[in-house]
Design a protein around this nucleic acid. Structure first.
Length: 424
RNA sequence: GGGGGGAUACCAAAGCGGUCAAAUGGGGCAGACUGUAAAUCUGUUGGCUACGCCUUCGUAGGUUCGAAUCCUGCUCCCCCCA
């Protein structure tokens, strides 16, 4: 099986320039993908295109990750209804470094097909405006550029600045540069990049009469229409400071049955046979959540580490397993801190408990777990509040006897929302 | 420049003098069912010292016993004509 075949069965192939397959199979191909440095961390939404590079490299090809220092200063109009704000150079540099570090977790930077990270700011900054419009702009017609969906939509809609209009040429310049300087004849990306990518292919054809190759993968979507890689609280990041390993693990565990099948094909490095047999099992016994677990385990380990994974699983067992108050009480202080890492935590004084506040006051007064007493009353009435894993009614008084390790109280709202109260 | 329409809770959208803390839909949250899934059903979705009180319908004033509803100034949006 070749690289293209691999992408096909994984559902990762959307569009392809003719003869791309021949190029990839020719031996040592080289391809690049651009990453936007709008933040200092990548998120799981970037993961699909990272996987393109990973698979590409596994077939012996050389992957190039381009960090868009220059393009990040302009803003891609694709999928955007309005103009973007600029980022300053210092911020961009910082973001680039962080992103490069994250990419190193996925790609092999040694050997014959060693991955490379490049930054387009390094060559774009040397190109003067006159050079640009003479050497690049001359080769592509405005008619061609306006026909791209990303541009067309904006011309018919909110309008588009010249800056963003020229984005596809800047990205095309990148491709041209890598083609000429690094013999990189191929560009990959998400399907939203198709328009920008083909401009580069066209530029190379007109300017040097050479054929360049490209392919895109479909954007990962969820069955319920919500955006992949997002939770109520925002993006799911690869950076542990932004998304803890536990939350990262939980994101995958919570995938719906339908989504899980799609996701494992895209994100797992397991073999075709292995994945297909898992899907069969999954369809027979969905309640075991084989695929969700496999996904969560594989990705948490790759993005974070084996020990982070172990901790995430332990925390999951305690929080979602059949654990009872007794097991909670048995936890050592260290376990508690570890399990509840990243859980919203409230600190109270010891005297706050001496008066044995009622549960309503405790939730919305002593602590700020809930924002008002009205909400606290409602939640208790809805039977959604648990203290140390036990449902409580409105007559509940909170006192010293509720303390675990003489210091902690675990509060739950519903099944999934945990809060830790620490008595200092 | 001329004419017209609009701004209501997280969003969309009713209400056009008291019966409005404000219909309805979506979203959120919770409960039931389950598998920490999906679908479905139910409840809930301004605050409080709570059969009452307080603050909210762009903003600042005014009329009135009483205003989201009427009047005036201001800010912002949209449409049509030029």
């Amino acid at each position: 099986m070749g690289f293209i075949e691999e992408l096909k069965w994984r559902g990762m192939l959307q569009d392809m320039i003719p003869e791309t397959e021949d190029y990839v199979n020719s031996g040592s191909a080289s391809a690049y993908i651009g990453f936007d440095p709008t933040s200092d961390s990548l998120h799981v939404g970037n993961l699909a295109t990272i996987m393109l590079l990973v698979h590409f490299q596994r077939y012996g090809n050389k992957p190039i990750a381009l960090v868009g220092g220059a393009t990040g200063m302009i803003g891609d109009p694709s999928g955007k209804s309005a103009e973007r704000n600029f980022l300053d150079e210092g911020q961009l540099r910082l973001n680039q470094n962080c992103i490069e570090k994250q990419l190193r977790q996925f790609l092999d930077f040694d050997g014959d097909a060693a991955a490379v990270v490049v930054n387009n700011y390094d060559w774009m900054k040397k190109i003067s405006f006159l050079d640009f419009i003479r050497d690049i702009g001359k080769h592509i017609t405005v008619n061609y550029m306006m026909a791209k969906d990303s541009v067309k939509n904006r011309i018919e809609g909110q309008g588009i600045s010249f800056t963003e209009f020229s984005y596809q040429l800047v990205q095309g310049t990148d491709f041209y540069h890598l083609f000429s300087e690094m013999d990189c004849k191929m560009q990959m990306g998400g399907s939203d990049q198709w328009g920008n990518i083909t401009t580069g292919v066209e530029l190379i054809r007109r300017k040097r009469g050479d054929k360049a190759f490209a392919l895109t993968c479909p954007l990962v979507t969820k069955a319920d229409g919500s955006k992949f890689g997002k939770t109520e609280s925002g993006n799911v990041w690869l950076d542990r400071e932004r998304t803890s390993p536990y939350k990262f693990y939980q994101y995958w565990i919570n995938a719906s049955d339908e989504d899980a099948v799609k996701l494992i094909k895209v994100f797992s490095l397991k073999s075709k046979e292995e994945i297909e047999s898992m899907i069969l099992q999954h369809e027979k016994e969905p309640h075991l959540r084989i695929i969700q677990k496999a996904l969560a385990e594989e990705l948490t380990e790759r993005v974070h580490s084996k020990s982070d994974l172990t901790k995430a699983i332990e925390a999951t067992n305690i929080l979602f397993g059949k654990s009872t108050k007794d097991q909670l009480v048995d936890l050592s202080e260290r376990d508690i801190l570890e399990v509840f890492e990243g859980v919203p935590t409230f600190h109270i004084g010891r005297d706050d408990l001496s008066s044995s506040p009622g549960i309503i006051d405790f939730l919305a007064g002593t602590t700020e777990i809930l924002s008002s007493k009205g909400e606290a009353r409602r939640s208790v009435k809805e039977n959604s509040i648990s203290v140390n894993k036990e449902k409580v009614g409105d007559a509940k008084l909170v006192s010293d006897s509720d303390l675990i390790s003489d210091k902690y109280i675990v509060v739950q709202k519903g099944k999934k929302q945990y809060f830790l109260v620490v008595v200092d």
